[in-house]
């Protein structure tokens, strides 16, 4: 399996229902990402970056073309299998953080363990503590996310994404809501994850500083790959 790319996308086409967009959101997109690679997906707003990440993460299944993650074709997976892959193999980080306000920081980080059918919940607290330590938020474990700054919220979201040590991290504009310095800190965390854990990183961004940190850029324009 180590020889296979982490992500293989070939001739991917995504169309929204008639009228939503005048053209396909993704139009014959082909991208291959090797294991441990840090790839920035760049492009303007509406270029298809988020759609591509959602398709790779199995959140959006209504696509045509070849889509493989870790050597496995997503189209052939049932809901349970796909959910298991999202739970163990893929981590998501969103621009809007998407933390659950009724839970504490620690409970937010533990959330993936609630859906882990390996019975991972008993060990989740310790692992969540480790994940929070990696993003420098051990002291915030017991507070609700509403009391955190934007940068801290994003670091909690990263901790949640890495709880199960996924091989692939999909990040959609992770610094979009952060100031420059906080954004740099978040990028540093990603770089450290890639370096220490060998995590494959795909980050959708329109910010040059993020793209510069990545090892490779894939440029999308109007749903097509124009570079990379």
């Amino acid at each position: 399996m180590s020889g296979t790319p982490m992500v293989r996308v070939e001739h991917l086409v995504k169309r929204y229902p008639a009228g939503a967009l005048p053209r396909p959101a993704l139009d014959d997109v082909s991208v291959t990402v090797a294991r441990g690679e840090f790839v920035a997906i760049v492009g303007r707003s509406g270029s298809g970056k988020t759609t591509l990440l959602n398709a790779i993460g199995g959140l959006d299944r209504d696509c045509a073309g070849v889509l493989e993650v870790d050597g496995r074709a997503l189209a052939r997976m049932g809901d349970r299998e796909l959910a298991r892959m999202r739970n163990r193999g893929i981590g998501f980080v969103f621009q809007a953080f998407h933390l659950l306000p009724q839970l504490t920081v620690l409970e937010n980080v533990m959330l993936p363990a609630s859906f882990d059918d390996r019975g991972a919940l008993p060990t989740a607290r310790g692992r969540a503590g480790d994940a929070l330590a990696r993003v420098g938020l051990s002291d915030k474990a017991a507070v609700p996310p509403t009391r955190l700054s934007a940068g801290e919220k994003q670091r909690v979201a990263i901790a949640r994404a890495i709880l199960n040590r996924p091989a692939l991290l999909l990040c959609d504009e992770p610094t979009g809501n952060l100031d420059a310095e906080t954004g740099r800190n978040v990028i540093d965390i990603f770089l450290e994850l890639a370096a220490k854990d060998g995590t494959t990183l795909m980050i959708a961004t329109h910010e040059g500083r993020v793209a510069e940190a990545a090892g490779r850029r894939v440029v999308l324009a109007a749903g097509k790959v124009v570079e990379g």
């Binding site: 809901d79 999202r86 163990r88 998407h98 993936p112 859906f115």
Partner: peptide, 16 residues
Amino acid sequence: RAEIAVWRAVGATLLD
């Protein structure tokens, strides 16, 4: 809806 979407993103099945 956002909370449910997060459940799905972190591994919840339709049945979950």
